[in-house]
Simulated assay, not measured.
Amino acid sequence: MKQKLSSLEQLLDRMDEAGEGEEHVSLDMLMDTIGKRSFGPILLLIGLILITPLSGIPTLPSTMGVAVFLIALQMLVRRKHIWLPGWILRRKIKQQKLAKASQWLRRPARFIDRLVKHRLNILVEGPGSWPIALVCLLLAVTLPLLEPVPFAASSAGVALTCFGLAMIAHDGLLALLAYSATLGISGLVAYSFL
């Protein structure tokens, strides 16, 4: 059994592991490598995918929006295992692009990992995870709206990355940062429709 994730760098290592020897890597392969029992690592993975230039791939932000919506619903009903439909799990990314994205994130990941620590646990554990799930539902709905603007989905990726990492590291301060980022994203979406 794999050790639980506790840092961004560990997640990047697992992303690289999933793609070894393959031309394409599916979301299912990534989830198998990361684990399907924890919501935090999967939100972190989706957030990281959206932060990188991969978010410019047509329909990827909308597909990730559907995945986040389903994951957030499952968080609310307290499911033990994550379920996603086959059409999302079969979505593939070229291994080279994934490796490039992982490499691109290494330096910021090291910096962020030094700042993250256990604090304000009440904001991420037990009932504290329900507001996170509700905000993730909101982010999921905004992702398709952000897709027409190149790389705008990266802003939602920042919030999802923060929520995922906050849940993994039990860092409530990081969750508060993610809430703030979500407010900014909501403002961006509202402004673009005015």
Rank of each mutant, 00 (worst) to 15 (best):
T59P: 00
L146V: 07
I71G: 01
G56T: 09
L12P: 07
P85M: 10
P85D: 02
R107W: 10
L115W: 13
L11G: 05
I88P: 12
A152R: 00
R79Q: 15
E9A: 13
L48S: 14
Q96P: 01
N121G: 09
M31L: 12
L143R: 05
A153W: 06
R119K: 13
D13W: 07
V124A: 04
V141C: 05
L5G: 05
M29S: 11
L12S: 06
G86R: 15
L8W: 12
L134D: 05
F163S: 07
E22K: 15
F163M: 00
L30Y: 09
I51R: 15
I168Y: 06
R90I: 02
L173P: 00
K117R: 15
H170P: 04
M29K: 15
L105I: 08
G40I: 06
I34K: 11
A190V: 08
R91S: 13
A18F: 06
A133D: 06
A181Y: 11
L123K: 01
W83A: 04
I46S: 00
S154Q: 09
P53M: 02
L139T: 04
S102F: 01
R37I: 07
D16T: 11
K36R: 15
K100R: 14
M31T: 08
I42D: 06
R37M: 02
E125G: 06
I51N: 12
I46N: 11
Y179Q: 05
D113N: 10
V189P: 01
M15V: 14
G47S: 05
P58H: 07
G40V: 10
K80V: 10
L194C: 00
N121S: 15
V135A: 02
N121C: 08
L70F: 06
K80D: 14
A101W: 01
S26F: 02
E20T: 03
R37N: 13
L60F: 07
L120K: 13
A153Q: 03
I168F: 02
E9L: 13
T63G: 02
A190W: 08
A99F: 07
T161D: 06
L76V: 07
G172N: 10
I93W: 03
A159G: 02
L173Q: 09
L5I: 12
L173V: 05
A166Y: 00
L145N: 01
Q74M: 08
K117Q: 14
K36T: 13
L11S: 07
T33A: 15
G56N: 03
E23F: 04
I185K: 07
L177Q: 07
I88N: 08
M31N: 13
H81V: 14
E125A: 12
V135W: 06
A18Q: 05
S7D: 03
Q74R: 08
L177D: 11
I93S: 00
D16C: 12
T33D: 10
I34G: 08
M167N: 06
I49V: 15
G187W: 10
P144M: 08
P108N: 05
W87C: 10
